[in-house]
């Protein structure tokens, strides 16, 4: 707990330096959302009441939430930092600390994201208020959304760490990351709600972790699911967390073994 507090303080100092950048990024991130309002208005203009099970209002809200979630859950920086640490050898310093590498890294990550969320919260709410005509509000779903969001948070972190640790074996990782990023954008539902996809394809996507990092929490908020399906979705998320958690631990041990075997 004390380390978490220190991590929080450290990340707060770091945040204050980049604050203006963060807010700028956030505001520019809102522009595409405004474009979606026009684009989907034209699409719904064909007279359809619901597309992919979503009403127009829900559709806009979908993108707003996707935007918030993907900003908060984005783990790319952590992955890049980790791979730089591995390649530059700074990871040695972490190996010699009496606190586990991953547990320290996770605390720092969590602190960073909490600070981000706290800072972005008010501008985000203001933005929602400004476009409240297009926002679908359902307090009942919020609780399940939060649970699912937390699981997605852990899931996304683990995927990021796994990719970072892969640097131990694969030297160049940024190309791979960009590629994966583009694939993920589609598979996780950040471009289009996955309910618009044919059911076969949608089923196939259930076998990848991506949709559970973004689409599932947001879809849960929309409340079109039966409560039973909601439970199943959250359950699958939890299973993915366990599976990837195990993979991560094994990978970390292998990576460290390779370190102490080969050195640099």
């Amino acid at each position: 707990m004390r380390i978490q507090k220190a991590a929080f303080k450290l990340k707060l100092s770091e945040f204050t330096i980049y604050r203006s950048n963060v807010f700028l990024n956030f505001f520019f991130g809102c522009v595409p959302l405004l474009v979606y309002i026009f684009l989907w208005k034209a699409i719904y203009g064909n007279g359809l009441e619901r597309i992919g099970g979503y009403s127009y209002k829900q559709m806009i809200t979908y993108y707003v939430l996707i935007f918030l979630c993907s900003e908060v859950l984005d783990a790319r920086d952590n992955t890049v930092k980790m791979s730089e640490m591995i390649q530059g050898g700074q990871i040695h310093n972490y190996l010699l600390k009496p606190v586990g590498f991953l547990s320290l890294n996770y605390r720092l990550y969590q602190a960073e994201k909490m600070i981000y969320l706290l800072n972005i919260g008010i501008p985000f709410l203001a933005f929602c208020l400004a476009i409240h005509k297009f926002i679908y509000w359902k307090a009942y779903n919020l609780l399940f959304f939060v649970i699912s969001f937390c699981l997605a948070f852990v899931l996304k972190y683990m995927i990021g760490c796994i990719l970072g640790l892969i640097t131990t074996w694969v030297e160049e990782i940024t190309g791979l990351l960009d590629l994966l990023n583009n694939v993920e954008k589609f598979l996780s539902g950040s471009l289009i709600p996955l309910t618009l996809l044919p059911s076969g394809l949608n089923m196939a996507l259930s076998f990848f972790p991506f949709k559970y990092t973004l689409f599932v929490p947001v879809d849960i908020y929309m409340g079109n699911m039966k409560s039973q399906d909601m439970g199943i979705s959250i359950g699958i998320q939890a299973v993915w967390c366990i599976v990837l958690g195990l993979v991560l631990i094994i990978l970390k041990n292998e990576a460290f073994k390779k370190y102490s075997g080969y050195g640099s």
């Binding site: 004390r2 220190a6 991590a7 303080k9 450290l10 100092s13 770091e14 009496p98």
Partner: peptide, 17 residues
């Protein structure tokens, strides 16, 4: 830590130990 003061780095380090 590159972007912040050394003091902030020290605090975290001390907590780790």
């Amino acid at each position: 830590w590159w972007d912040i003061s050394a003091y902030d780095s020290f605090e975290l380090e001390g907590q780790i130990y």
